[in-house]
Design a protein around this nucleic acid. Structure first.
Lengths: 140, 140
DNA sequence: ATTGACTGACGAAGGTCTTCGTATAGTCTT
DNA sequence: AAGACTATACGAAGACCTTCGTCAGTCAAT
């Protein structure tokens, strides 16, 4: 029997393409191909096809008015990161962000600067938490 | 043409099963089925088939000597979490753990206790870092 | 031993994903 | 305008995933 289809979550190959597009803001197929097609041994039409499918899925938008069509991501990188992270958190970390963060931190490689930034974020979170967590409150 | 196959990364359905097995330490097919088969509308033989495939892939081990066969995970949850996290970090976060952690933290829901623990982890990391991380030029 | 309920092995259907080949359409150069 | 190139669209091949149906084996109680 069939499988139920996934919401709007990019596949592996799609995510690789998104990474390039996020980096550049907007790109042509050829630019994406040059960046990852060659090093990954993927053909030009493969990249094209994927980008067409991604456009159908709503992951990308394309401007057809210019000749080599220009593609952009419909959603910002941060939003997708958030979604992917939330998904992984649910599926592999029992929905606990704490243990996820701890694992990520233990993975070394964080620069001192990043660590400082994380600490600052922690400060904000804790103050928010203690003062007022109910943001919505404005309306009655 | 074909697709290149993934290393030893569990699929979505496999991960759902792993979650149950990690929780219980060891399980029978029926236990897994009771836990997620019913609520997800998946049949018993589906769960069984998946667990058989997972065993072939090396994700699970089964003890055939007892009657309802008993399955266990071959690798601890933390190791898999680490691998999945690293994978996501590479593919969606440009390999930067910092921004991943920040995103995860901003997803709130972290309990104060978790925040404290994260802070402690940060302390450890920073002390490690300041002591023995500067491989480059001598200390001055 | 026969029956009934449960377990386990297999194969196959029907999707998705990735990969291209091929054909068509535009653009540019001469 | 013709030929050479590049870009785009389309369809299809084949791996992989998820889902079961079916059949055979096991065990307990009749």
């Amino acid at each position: 029997m069939p499988r139920k289809q996934n919401p709007r979550k990019p596949t592996e190959a799609e995510l690789a393409i998104l990474a390039v597009i996020w980096e550049r803001g907007q790109t042509t197929v050829r630019e994406v191909f040059n960046e990852l097609g060659e090093e990954q041994g993927v053909g030009y039409t493969t990249v094209l096809k994927l980008m067409q499918i991604m456009t159908e899925k709503g992951l990308l938008q394309k401007d057809v008015s210019v000749r080599p069509q220009v593609f952009t991501a419909t959603r910002p990188r941060s939003q997708m990161q958030r979604a992917l992270l939330g998904d992984l958190m649910d599926r592999a970390f029992s929905g606990s962000p704490g243990s996820l963060v701890l694992q990520a931190l233990s993975m070394k490689q964080s620069t001192p600067q990043e660590l400082r930034e994380i600490r600052r974020m922690l400060d904000e979170l804790e103050s928010d938490e203690s003062v007022g967590d109910d943001i919505e409150g404005g309306a009655q």
